[in-house]
Write a protein that binds this DNA or RNA. Structure first.
Lengths: 131, 131
DNA sequence: TTGGAAAAACGAAAGATTTAGTATTTAGTG
DNA sequence: CACTAAATACTAAATCTTTCGTTTTTCCAA
């Protein structure tokens, strides 16, 4: 079973599942299914299909333990965050991260705490750079 | 022709077209088509279909001038940037914009100038909030 | 005023995504 | 060893996306 063209990004549902898997570290189909949002009511087979697709696409791997497969993420959340940000920056911000942050900061629904937190982060970063 | 469920986000190709439309302000199918990347070789009818879909989904509007439609974006690029960032922040950064910025700053090793630029932006923003 | 070129309208085909049903396999128990 | 419960494998249907061909409309010039 050859894996397709190695998808770069997760679809909506795939991300939903990966997020749960990142949370629990590793787990079976049932483990992941149990972690989905309360309202979410997916058949077991649907969940299994999603996990199989994630494996086909190379985002997770599995090892058989007893009769069940235990899944583990191959891509860390950090790495996927980076990949997604890079993509967004390219596609929507002319590859200029500063303008991305500018837009984020200009948005009205950012709390003052959040703004301060970001500024402290930058201060630390600037300090380290000069060390 | 009822417009579907009001899509929130642009697909890959839709974003490609919207980006061109944002660049030129407004234009016909041919205007947008002409702006696409050099290698991109789409049939006129394909481009027309994309523009029609964009209108159906409520992202653009059109007015007839002579025999052709002139399209105009209904959603500004700024607004779409905000929407996209909000979505990414929710889905991948636990709704914590600071962690998004942290990831960005850690990845890109931004120049000191860029970092300073962002910090000044924050300072201005924080100052305005307290006014 | 009519013929032709350009554009719009329509819709179909191919592929991806999302969901789930049915069939098959497997591990353990009586 | 045979049966059963649970898991996996396979398949399919519905919808969305991307692309483009065919048909219809529209404007203008000869």
């Amino acid at each position: 079973m050859r894996q397709k063209k190695k998808a770069e990004f997760l679809t909506e549902v795939e991300l939903e599942f990966m997020t749960r898997l990142w949370e629990i570290g590793e787990g079976t189909v049932r483990d992941v299914l149990a972690k989905l949002a309360p309202g979410r009511d997916l058949a077991y087979t649907s969940a299994a299909t999603i996990m199989r697709i994630l494996e086909q696409k190379g985002f997770v791997t599995s090892t058989k333990q007893g009769k069940t497969f235990v899944y583990r993420a191959l891509l860390t959340k950090d790495a996927y965050q980076s990949r997604s940000l890079k993509d967004l920056s390219e596609k929507l911000f002319d590859n200029t991260p500063a303008s991305l942050v500018a837009r984020l900061v200009d948005d009205n629904d950012l709390s003052k705490d959040a703004l301060n937190e970001i500024r402290e982060l930058l201060d630390r970063r600037l300090k380290n750079d000069t060390d």
